[in-house]
Design a protein around this nucleic acid. Sequence first.
DNA 1: TGACATTAGGCAACATGTTGCATATTATAT
DNA 2: ATATAATATGCAACATGTTGCCTAATGTCA
Lengths: 157, 157
Amino acid sequence: MDELRQKAYIFGTIFTLANKLQVLGDEFDKNITTKQWLFILGVSTFREPPMISELAKFIGYSRQNAKRIAAALQESGYITITKDENDARASRIELTPKCRQYFKKRDKREIEFLEKLFTGFDAELTHSLYKGLIRLELNIKEFMRSYENMDSDVDSI
Amino acid sequence: MDELRQKAYIFGTIFTLANKLQVLGDEFDKNITTKQWLFILGVSTFREPPMISELAKFIGYSRQNAKRIAAALQESGYITITKDENDARASRIELTPKCRQYFKKRDKREIEFLEKLFTGFDAELTHSLYKGLIRLELNIKEFMRSYENMDSDVDSI
DNA sequence: TGACATTAGGCAACATGTTGCATATTATAT
DNA sequence: ATATAATATGCAACATGTTGCCTAATGTCA
């Protein structure tokens, strides 16, 4: 298989994998969806409670989508959304003790989940995959910038 | 960054990439969405016109979703959906001449798109990424099978 | 200070993903 | 031959992703 075909395959497979991993993750823990899981993971990497838009950018979802997930998580008591004291526009997201406790309990199963998902991966393959995806993410950012600066030219096909 | 963290990162990034690649692909050609593109690519890899469910399985979407995309593509004249002569249940999907012509014209731009997306990838990195995603796909299939055979145990957390 | 741009977020609409349940046709096994 | 299982599809509902347009608060610069 030549390089170009491999690239096309990678392109297509990312969508397939995203769909299937979501189903798998939803199955893994019925209490919390895959996207809610990643949302919480995202929040936990911030040192100070992030704003919705800040978090959305970080985890790569649209603001609207992040907001909807946040609403669901607040509903089920995993996060709180509180108005910022200094900026009347902003809301800050914080994990509740319930959430921290729950994920502490899940931790071992999470590790098993990841290990099982990556069955047969040696350190080198894992690292190349990691490196490749990071680079792809970077390239996409560049790519989008170039589209923004074009303002169409798209109809010229 | 240790291996486990890399795996978690890969897991999360696949979702991020899927979202962003979809936006990027939709931007690339306003006449056809990214998912429609992949749908057509899928059809073109079959030697005989595939059934919807056959194709859905191949490209990794749910049947319902594939059906909806098919309806949109039929609406815009890129495919035809015809009843199978020998099996009254089945419908067969075929690309129209219009579709083939359109994608022939797009071909050069598609290649440029992929090359740009994979800027900075040498043959080795491309191949490892390719290999890693294939393996991940395989593992997911296994994983799902194991869930099917369990019939829950999930609440035991 | 006042005009203007930027930022945070809400609401509505729509595309895309899933599951669950129903129906009709075909395949299989006794 | 007929009961049963499997396959192919349709419809409805709901989760999740996006954009576009709106308001309000904040930041910036003359």
